[in-house]
C-alpha cells in the first residue's frame, strides 16, 4: 500500500482506486470494531458498509491537521454506532452473568478457554465508555496508542492509563462473572 496521505489525497480528487485501497486496508478493522459493539451480525455488516459509504461521500471534507485518516474513519464508525444504539436503546439487554456457563474449577482457564467475541462484548459493556473505546480501538481496530489518542482526543499518557485500567477492569469483570456462576 502506498503512502496513506497520498491515497487520501487521490481519493479526495475522485480516484476510486485510491479509495478502494483505503477501503481494503481498513475494512476488517472497522468490521471488528463494529462487531465488538453490535451483536447482530447482519446489523454489524450493514453498519460496516455504511461507514465506508459515509466515508466515501464525505472524504472531501477530511483535512490533515494532525488527525490521521484512521482516526477520522473510526470516528465515523463511532458516531454511526452511537446513533444506532440510541435507536435501539429500548431493546432488552442480556446481562453477563446470564450468558456465562460454568464448566471448570480454574477461573482463569475457564475464561480463557470459553472466551469469544460475544462474551467479550458482554464483558466490555461493564466497563466505562472511555475504557470500552480504548479496548475497541486498540484491539479491534488495531490502532497504535498514538492513533487511539488522536481518535479519542486525549493525550497518549491518558490513553495508556485508560488502557491499563480497561484491561484490569475487564479481567475483574470476567472473574466476577465466573465466581457468580459458582455461587
Amino acid at each position: 500500500m502506498q503512502d496513506e496521505q497520498g491515497l487520501v489525497r487521490q481519493a479526495q480528487q475522485g480516484d476510486k482506486d485510491a479509495f478502494a485501497e483505503l477501503y481494503e486496508a481498513y475494512f476488517d478493522k472497522i468490521y471488528r470494531y463494529v462487531v465488538l459493539k453490535i451483536s447482530n451480525r447482519a446489523e454489524a455488516e450493514d453498519m460496516t458498509q455504511q461507514v465506508f459509504l459515509k466515508a466515501y461521500q464525505s472524504i472531501g471534507s477530511f483535512k490533515w491537521k494532525g488527525v490521521p485518516f484512521s482516526a477520522w474513519l473510526f470516528r465515523i464508525a463511532h458516531n454511526q454506532i452511537v446513533d444506532f444504539v440510541r435507536k435501539q436503546s429500548r431493546r432488552p439487554t442480556v446481562r453477563l452473568e446470564e450468558s456465562m456457563v460454568s464448566s471448570d474449577d480454574n477461573p482463569l482457564r475457564t475464561v480463557e478457554s470459553r472466551f469469544d467475541i460475544e462474551r467479550l462484548r458482554l464483558a466490555t459493556q461493564q466497563l466505562t465508555a472511555a475504557q470500552q473505546e480504548v479496548i475497541s480501538l486498540r484491539f479491534a481496530g488495531g490502532l497504535a496508542i498514538a492513533e487511539v489518542a488522536r481518535t479519542m482526543g486525549k493525550s497518549e499518557g491518558a490513553v495508556k492509563a485508560l488502557q491499563h485500567s480497561a484491561v484490569a477492569a475487564l479481567r475483574k469483570v470476567l472473574l466476577v462473572g465466573e465466581e457468580s456462576e459458582k455461587g
Binding site: D28, Y31, E112, F115, I117, F139, A140
Partner: peptide, 10 residues
C-alpha cells in the same frame, strides 16, 4: 485472550 476473541473476520 481479548485479542484472540476479537480476531473475527468478515
Amino acid at each position: 485472550i481479548t485479542n484472540e476473541a476479537i480476531d473475527v473476520t468478515p
